[in-house]
Design a protein around this nucleic acid. Sequence first.
DNA 1: TTGTAGGCGTTATCAG
DNA 2: CTGATAACGCCTACAA
Lengths: 327, 327
Amino acid sequence: MSEKSKNWVKAEDVARLAGVSRSAVSRTFTPGASVAEKTRQKVLAAAEELGYQVNIIARAMNTGSSNFIGIVTAGFDNPFRSKLLAPLVHQLALHGLIPLLMNADDPQQLAPSLKQLLSYHVAGVIITSGAPPLSLAEEYLARKIPVTLINRHADLAGCDRVASDNSQGAHLIAQHCTNRGWRKIGFIGEDAHHFSTSQRYQALKKLLGDRLVATRFFPGGGYEAGRAAACELCEEQPDLEVLVCATDMLALGAIDGLKAHASRPAVTGFDDIPQAAWDPYQLTTVQQDTALLARHAVDLLLTRIAQFELPPRQRAVPVKLIVRRSA
Amino acid sequence: MSEKSKNWVKAEDVARLAGVSRSAVSRTFTPGASVAEKTRQKVLAAAEELGYQVNIIARAMNTGSSNFIGIVTAGFDNPFRSKLLAPLVHQLALHGLIPLLMNADDPQQLAPSLKQLLSYHVAGVIITSGAPPLSLAEEYLARKIPVTLINRHADLAGCDRVASDNSQGAHLIAQHCTNRGWRKIGFIGEDAHHFSTSQRYQALKKLLGDRLVATRFFPGGGYEAGRAAACELCEEQPDLEVLVCATDMLALGAIDGLKAHASRPAVTGFDDIPQAAWDPYQLTTVQQDTALLARHAVDLLLTRIAQFELPPRQRAVPVKLIVRRSA
DNA sequence: TTGTAGGCGTTATCAG
DNA sequence: CTGATAACGCCTACAA
């Protein structure tokens, strides 16, 4: 694309300066290769002096496997997903992997982008909740590129999944309702087939039985959706004692929406985004352990990179009830 | 790292199927190369059938330049920075570039990480506000790798900068104060040498003169810092009419912190993060145009990738006052 | 332990 | 316009 005059320092330069062969240099930077300590030091010194860095591109081409991990995510504006991104990047870095970031916000653009990602020969892909069509994951699996899903459902064989334990979360919420003696319970969620929403909803429905008196799904599922859904629901069922929300964003919107309302049920959320702790909300919610989600995701990915043929695995990450003033 | 049995389909395979040479295949996928339409079609058909994708790694090694752009950022939990990430990734994708994400949260880990990034032969680097030591950028510039800074200061020659027009923002705030007739104005910000804080503060100080009666800098600059700083300041100056905050996060914290307080000055922010529009806050703030920031950043980077030797450039992105109920 | 000699998949160069 | 051929920088048998 530009002038080729970037005179990178290469292994050969280091070798010359150190008075050894190229291979000696290569071996010095290959973990677990056999080099005499003395030459190793010479090489290291020369490398330091010249500012040599192994050219990962060349190494990748040679070995046929890269350090790139595709991270496919949508909606950076969603605080939960942002919260997940940091530990994910951190975990990858710990293992010498580096994320290629792919925004799935625009489904139109996603398909070509994902195909393009293929040409980077990523070692694996992590797809987080909300990122759309899983059919695309098949292209990766077909090429034996491991795919790990976070908080997502998958009918695909051969891809691993980590998710927060939504059923435990539902238990915690139900228990809390029982403790407080609530018998008129409402629920709002995103689209009914959205993974987290539906898992949480199904589990709650079973646990609450006919205490669950009203439900509403609101596509999109952000703050505004929470507002609208909460208002509608409380209009319909003015004697609701608690409004259980599938996500914190919905819950925060709900709290604000209900302020103007006559009936003021308790509100619970799910995720524990930073804003849930803010003063006007003080949201009682189920906390997802993003650090652990990330750790499992990377671990699953790594083991499958090491050996692709493995039965699909699935891990549930424990959650925790955070009780605040909202319920 | 693993079995090398990933039998990627390569140009040679396509060539064989199409009955042409490797070069013909290569040319077909090289924009602006001369291929007969007929062979081009043959190649395309064969490629489609085999599911061929150009191996970008190999291409990069050959041409000596990659499509990788390093994005160095800290604090994904900061809503403003998350908001900036989406358009940034989008802009890069538009130009066929893909971001390598680097988390600068841990300054300890950053230095080695940044050096490592070097070995990926990135075509350029974008550093966003908050990401620490700029000394590291020098390593890139020394290797003629373009560096673009977003909302950051730099003493380094040869790196381009985009920033929101903080001075215009300060004007808007000052004007607003004048319109409302406020004469007792307080200011809170992050560390005094933080780029955005200091730019906004300096401009405001000049504009407001002795109407600016109290100032406090609070390291970290998040929600909690805003709370604490606001309380301290209003304790000190109970007759404050408005509290101007260097960022929305500070402002939101301030609003909540002051709820319990006797004196309740108006509050303004800066950034316009999504939460600023939420009901309990309705924050009057200066909106940064993240889409435009991203566009400029990528544009600057691209032009400098095309030609490294260029005088350092600097662009200011206009901001906009969003008046809501908080002031 | 060391050095030498391929080869990884592309693109660029240069004849034809 | 096309097809051989030589890099690109590195890793890895293999032989010394």
